[in-house]
């Protein structure tokens, strides 16, 4: 059940983020929408690694070494998502930087006032 909830939430977040990115005209709102979609992708990836009745991939007294194979969830998606979160943060910071530069150049954050790449 948990994985279904997480996966549905993730997919909805992706759709919300894409909707926001495609319909809003303010660059800052577009950036926020992209981070929303990014979060959704991470949530879906993590939920794929979930297995019913199992626990986090950390070994201690509760999860002894010998039982690890039958007791823990898939650690690979978690490692993958850790990477994705960090890269996502770098991308967000870069998007904000470019938004600042664009604002400095034209004094506007409306995407419609940047027509150079439009055909």
């Amino acid at each position: 059940m948990m994985d279904w909830i997480a996966m549905t939430t993730g997919f909805i977040l992706i759709l919300m983020g894409l909707y926001g990115a495609l319909t809003h005209r303010n660059i800052l709102r577009i950036i926020v929408s992209f981070t929303l979609a990014n979060t959704g992708v991470n949530l879906v990836l993590v939920s794929v690694g979930y297995m019913l009745g199992r626990t986090a991939p950390i070994l201690d007294k509760a999860v002894p070494m010998a039982e690890a194979v039958t007791r823990i969830i898939d650690p690979l998606p978690q490692a993958l998502v850790l990477t994705a979160i960090v890269i996502g943060l770098g991308i967000t910071a870069m998007m904000l930087t470019y938004a600042y530069k664009l604002y400095e150049a034209k004094g506007s954050l409306d995407i419609a006032s940047y027509r150079e790449l439009k055909w």
Partner: peptide
Amino acid sequence: YYAAHSAEDLGAANIV
């Protein structure tokens, strides 16, 4: 493989 070997080979409790 990671679940079975990482604790033994590397001694790390956190497999991630």
